[in-house]
Design a protein around this nucleic acid. Structure first.
Lengths: 217, 217
DNA sequence: ATTAAAATTTAGGCAAATCTAAAAATATAT
DNA sequence: ATATATTTTTAGATTTGCCTAAATTTTAAT
């Protein structure tokens, strides 16, 4: 399996959540910063290797084998992110690019031992679940902050947007995984929220509130 | 810099020790399990990027810039080997293949932090020196075991052959870095040696004795 | 000093992964 | 329902890194 093939599998896996019955060629092209024609080429190649099910004009679907491969890559990606943050002093907004490289390293023993070394973490630094060896992915109980009503509170458990811009914005505002957040007020006009984090009040935009995952308490 | 280019630089760097005035095309081809014509192609490409100095039929020579790059890759390779052995329970005969992959990961911070995390190791699990950030490589005081005379003794400080066959042979015979070895007898007929390691006598072949580095005490 | 052998380079091709431009199929809008 | 717009696919090129086979250069041998 080539690096490029692995990246396609991973991307399609993520997009399947949004596009249940076939991921459009264009969606893949956009996500991978490439052209639709290149995507068609690759989909065909992956289909020939039985990693995908391909019917012309019907969008991309992973085969069971393709999905298994995709999950392995995601497992590696997230374990490496843990390593970078827990052991090498990376901040959560710095890990993505490096993990994108590390996820392609091929060695069963490496991942087994890395998992053990990190003491079998359940989630990565962004709160996303780490698939287990058998490819099982735990479902994390969560809802977007924007859904909560005035007076409700919860613990921050993840982000929907892992861009460093958003993560740095959270850092700047003292919001991190594990922090308790209470809704003080909701502004209907622009969906912004007044929240309280560790006793400090602040306002966050509707967009930000839609990218923060909370577990209600 | 592509993966393939990096592998050429690294290989040529290592071969330059043996071929001081130009590494023959064939030597590179042999080492990289490829064909001489492919090597010529690549040498030209590297020369165009000023990573090598190329004159037809004169063999390959690294430029200063090429040598700097090669050393960076070797630094990364050896640091990752330390990581695998010290932190992930790899044996010294299992690390090479994985380190060959890891050495191509691109991130300054990653290597800086890995070095710190490992507490700035001086040598890798085979006793080879780890180049520092500026590309300086310490010279390790050593000689091959085969050179020692009857009655002399030394500490094992490295291996010339890192094949897993040889390393496993050493494991099996209780020879490892740091062990004290004393020459009990030399057999002129086949250059084999009778040595003593931790009080136990054993015979090793001339070939093995030529691949073990010793520091005299 | 020729000639034979070995090493190196050139020429021409191939596969992976991408691109642009054009063609074909599907979706949308009136 | 038909025309228009959008999406997807095909066709044909390009680049990287490799190959084989043939030509060229260097080295070694007599």
């Amino acid at each position: 399996m080539t690096l490029s093939e692995e990246n396609y599998l991973k991307t399609i896996f993520h997009l399947e959540k949004e596009y249940k019955d076939g991921v459009p060629t264009n969606a893949i092209a956009h996500e991978m910063h490439t052209k639709a024609s290149s995507v068609t080429d690759m989909i065909k190649r992956l289909a020939e290797k039985d990693l995908m099910v391909y019917k012309k004009y019907q969008g991309a679907k992973l085969s069971d084998s393709g999905r298994k491969h995709a999950i392995k890559i995601i497992r590696k990606h997230r374990l490496w992110e843990c390593f970078l943050v827990d052991k090498l002093n990376f901040n959560w907004d710095e890990v993505h690019e490096v993990a994108e490289q590390l996820e392609h390293i091929k060695s069963e023993k490496l991942i087994l031992e890395l998992d053990k070394f990190l003491e079998y973490p359940k989630t990565d630094p962004h709160g996303d679940p780490i698939p287990d060896q058998d490819g099982h992915i735990a479902v994390i109980q969560k809802r977007v902050l924007a859904e909560l009503q005035r007076g409700e509170e919860g613990i921050c458990v993840g982000v929907n947007d892992s861009s460093s811009a958003f993560l740095q914005y959270l850092d700047k505002n003292n919001i991190a995984l594990g922090k308790k957040i209470k809704i003080e007020d909701k502004e209907e006009f622009d969906n912004s929220l007044v929240i309280q984090v560790e006793g400090k009040k602040m306002t966050i935009s509707g967009l930000a509130a839609n990218n923060l995952y909370i577990k209600k308490i």
